[in-house]
Design a protein around this nucleic acid. Structure first.
Lengths: 227, 227
DNA sequence: ACCTGAACACCGTTCAAGT
DNA sequence: ACCTGAACACCGTTCAAGT
C-alpha cells in the first residue's frame, strides 16, 4: 500500500531534494514561502515540484506525515519501557522538543489540515500508540482513569503549539508546561471529576473520516449495513 | 490616545461594515478569504478596505484587538467577584467559549502575530488582568503558588486552540479541557514542583517588545540608564 | 518517463480619476 | 475627505515543448 510505483532513481532523488529544501525553508521562514523558492533551493524547476506533489498543501502534508511517523516510531519503542508513567511523559516531552524545532509540524496541524486524508490517517496511528501508553499508565495507577488518549492528545497539541509561541521567553517553558500536563492527568488529587465523557478513539476516527476515501468506511454506513 | 482623528460619519460607518463583514466571512471560511469578497459583502470597493486598514493583516488585527478587549472587560468585571477561584475559572471558561465561536481570534494568535504591536499591547493588558486574578486566587489558597499568569495564559491559549480543532468530536470538549487545566493549577496535590521558574509579566513584555515602538522602553535600555 | 519555464488565474495592494 | 475600479506585482498551478 506504500510507494507502489517503482520510479526512476533520479526522480526519487529529486523528490527527496524537494522535501529537504522545503523543510529547511519552512523552518526558517514559515509556510508562506513561495513554491518557486523551494524549487530553486532544490535546484529544480517549479514544474517538477508539482509533478511530485499535486499541490503545495500535499508537499506540506508529506513533511508532516514523515515527522508524525517518527513520533509513532518513538512511541512504539517506548511501549517496551519498564516504567509506564515515565514512558508516557517521555513521549510527551519529546513531542514538545520536536514542536520547538520543526515549526512546520505543528503549524500545519489545526482542523483545516485534518481534512487531508494522509494526515488524518497518521494521526489515527499516533492515537493508537498514545492510547496504549495511557492505558498502561492507568493500569500502573499513575494516570487518572477518567482521561482518554484523545484528552491527552488535545492537551499535548495545545501545549506544543503554545509553548512554541513562547519559547523566546524561556527555553524551559516547554518542560514547565509538560509538568502542568503531568499534574493535570496524574492519578492522585482528583476530587473534582472531569465534565463530559472521555472521548474515545472511535469518536476521533469517525469525526475525521473523509467522504469518498477508499478503505475507510464511514460510521453511518457501518451502522446501516447490519440492519 | 485612541480614535483621535474625528472622521466623517459615513467613513466611520464603512469601517464598521468592513469589520462586521470580515468577521462574518472569517468565521464562515477562515482567514484565507479574499479581500475582494470582504469588500463586496460590505457593499464597498476594494480600495475602501485599504483606506481604512493598511493591509489585510491590519484588518484581522483590528478584529482580534476588539475581541481581546472584550475579554479584558469581562476579566476586570470578574475581579470584583466574591470567590477568587471561581472568578478565575469562569474567565477561562468564557475564553474557551469565545474561541469556539470566533475562530478568527485564536487562529491569529500564534507568534507570527505577536510582532503586531497592537495585538502585543492588548495582550499585555489581558495579562495584567490575568495576573491580578491568579494572585488573588493564590492568596485564597485555591491555586498553587508556583504558577504565574503567563503559565496560565499559555495553557489557556493552547487549550482554546486545540479544543476548537476538536469541537466536532464533542461539544463539551472545551469544558473537559478546562477541568484539566483546573486540575493542573489547583493548590493541593503538588508533590512534584514545576521545572524552571515562573515566567513573569515583565519577561513577557520585554520578549514581545517591538523595535521603534514609541513609549515602550526595552528592558536593556532600562538596565543601562541607571549606570 | 521525466524536466522545464512560459502562460494563466487569482490575490493583495496601489493609485489616478472621480464625487 | 472619501470612494472606486482599473492596473501591478506576485503566487499557485497547468501544460506544451523539450530530453
Amino acid at each position: 500500500m506504500e510507494e507502489r510505483t517503482p520510479r526512476r532513481v533520479d526522480a526519487e532523488r529529486n523528490r527527496r531534494r524537494l522535501l529537504d529544501a522545503a523543510t529547511e525553508i519552512f523552518c526558517e521562514r514559515g509556510l508562506d514561502v513561495s513554491v518557486g523558492e523551494i524549487a530553486e533551493r532544490a535546484g529544480l524547476g517549479r514544474g517538477t515540484l508539482f509533478r511530485n506533489f499535486p499541490s503545495k498543501e500535499a508537499l506540506i502534508a508529506a513533511i508532516v506525515v514523515e515527522r508524525v511517523r517518527e513520533s509513532i516510531a518513538r512511541g512504539r519503542a517506548m511501549l517496551a519501557a519498564p516504567d509506564p508513567g515515565e514512558a508516557l511523559f517521555a513521549l510527551v516531552d519529546q513531542a514538545i522538543r520536536v514542536s520547538e524545532t520543526d515549526r512546520v509540524l505543528f503549524e500545519a496541524l489545526d482542523d483545516n489540515w485534518m481534512v487531508n486524508e494522509e494526515i488524518a490517517a497518521v494521526h489515527r496511528e499516533l492515537l493508537a500508540v498514545l492510547d496504549a501508553m495511557v492505558t498502561r499508565a492507568q493500569a500502573a495507577g499513575v494516570v487518572r482513569r477518567d482521561v482518554s488518549a484523545v484528552d491527552v492528545l488535545i492537551m499535548l497539541k495545545g501545549v506544543c503549539e503554545a509553548s512554541r509561541s513562547f519559547r523566546h521567553l524561556d527555553a524551559d517553558i516547554g518542560l514547565r508546561q509538560l509538568d502542568l500536563v503531568r499534574a493535570a492527568i496524574s492519578a492522585p488529587g482528583h476530587e473534582r471529576p472531569l465534565r463530559g465523557h472521555p472521548p474515545t478513539v472511535q469518536e476521533f476516527e469517525c469525526c475525521h473520516a473523509q467522504t469518498g476515501a477508499e478503505g475507510s468506511v464511514p460510521a453511518a454506513e457501518l451502522a446501516t449495513s447490519g440492519g
